[in-house]
Design a protein around this nucleic acid. Structure first.
Lengths: 222, 222
DNA sequence: TTTTATGCAATAGTAATACTATTATTTGAT
DNA sequence: ATCAAATAATAGTATTACTATTGCATAAAA
């Protein structure tokens, strides 16, 4: 159905397109594994390069620094997710069911997508949960925003906001609620895994999280 | 009323109590200014020490590393905030009004507290918004949790959770909603300042944010 | 008064990280 | 086969995070 699918993701965050060379794809693949394994703080281009039998400097040909690499990966995920949402809700009749499907996709463990064999979507999902907020929690967020670093995230929130508005056109905080839904899904999964005193959601109990977010959303916009 | 008030905050996050020496208090004071100014990534103990006319090594006598220093400051804020909430809601009759007051405190610009002249609460509030999540978004979050790094945050969420439960004892996601409220307040303020496409809240429009969070909370638990 | 102990801060480092300049190699067009 | 362009590897430097050691006070004990 969607074979040979590619994203043109955040050209600004990389120096050259990593999907267009063998080394570039190995960089993406290995950086996802390594980031999930050791986290952004411990992650270095040296470790990454060693893992793919290359060198630090070669990685710097593709990405200015590790933060930009994270921006690229997070953008890839957001674009991919938006694609999945659009595809899965395309034939659905009511806006409410579409919103339900969207929340389902946001708060569920990821199914592997075989269209991109150099991206492990499950690991990438874990990176989003643990490291995602770090792409915007930086001092130069405004500069990066101007360079288009958050376009994919904005697109996703606009999509959800429009769903909310088609359910209740008079609701005044549709964007605020949209970003709250996305952030809450990721946050609560993190809490359930690491800080259980901050949530009623049990580890891997995605149904409970979905119920919470869906009930919160439905109650709020009606 | 509450003069000579001190917190015994997260002893585990510092090597010696910074409130008990002249240098220690200068470290706290200057680190708040510097963190707010340049952010955690650019922040170094060298810059901090230069700013207070001391040396890197002296700072290391008080804090193991900059992350532990951030943990200390964030804990101080959470403890201080919980104190303010308890004080301000003490005489209020209904649980709903108490919850309203709590959200008001979470989503408002900070008033200076003259009880602590080495802490600039307004700047600290900005640090919480921009850097707060970084205290738990680390690989060794479980270890730090065992050391008690998040006790103050847990206490705050439990407090809010209990307020929710006294409004509706049958609501099953009180803790989840509590942490969602806290995170949402901080998140949306950040978005309003830096990523306005992700929120309907305008910069410094705290009333709009309060209305959103309060309506969301009230709708959800009823 | 001298000696000894204790706490604190400064000096002077080391190891690791982030990043770059330059050289070597490959690729592809002519 | 030759040359030009693109790509990757080598070998660095500067900065950062962190530590080992020394020096200097103050104060208690001899």
């Amino acid at each position: 159905m969607l074979s040979n699918l590619t994203f043109k993701v955040s050209q600004s965050s990389c120096l050259r397109d990593p999907t267009e060379s063998e080394l570039g794809m190995r960089i993406l693949s290995q950086s996802i594994s390594l980031l999930e394994e050791i986290g952004l703080e411990q992650f270095t281009f040296k470790k990454l390069a060693t893992g793919i039998g290359s060198t630090e400097a070669s990685v710097y040909r593709y990405f200015e620094n590790k933060h930009k690499l994270l921006v690229y990966l997070v953008n890839w995920y957001w674009s991919w997710l938006q694609n999945r949402i659009v595809t899965k809700t395309y034939n659905q009749s009511s806006a409410f069911i579409k919103l339900e499907t969207t929340i389902e996709l946001l708060a569920s463990p990821i199914e592997q997508d075989d269209n991109f064999d150099f991206i492990d979507e499950k690991k990438l999902y874990n990176i989003i949960i643990s490291e995602g907020a770090k792409v915007y929690l930086v001092k130069n967020v405004d500069t990066e925003d101007n360079e288009g670093a958050f376009l994919a995230y904005k697109g996703l929130c606009r999509l959800i906001s429009n769903l909310i508005l088609s359910i209740n056109p008079k609701y005044m905080h549709s964007l605020t609620l949209a970003s709250t839904i996305v952030e809450t899904c990721h946050n609560q999964i993190f809490f359930s895994e690491h800080l259980p005193k901050l949530t009623d959601v049990s580890e891997d109990d995605y149904d409970s999280l979905k119920e919470f977010v869906l009930h919160l959303t439905a109650s709020t916009i009606q």
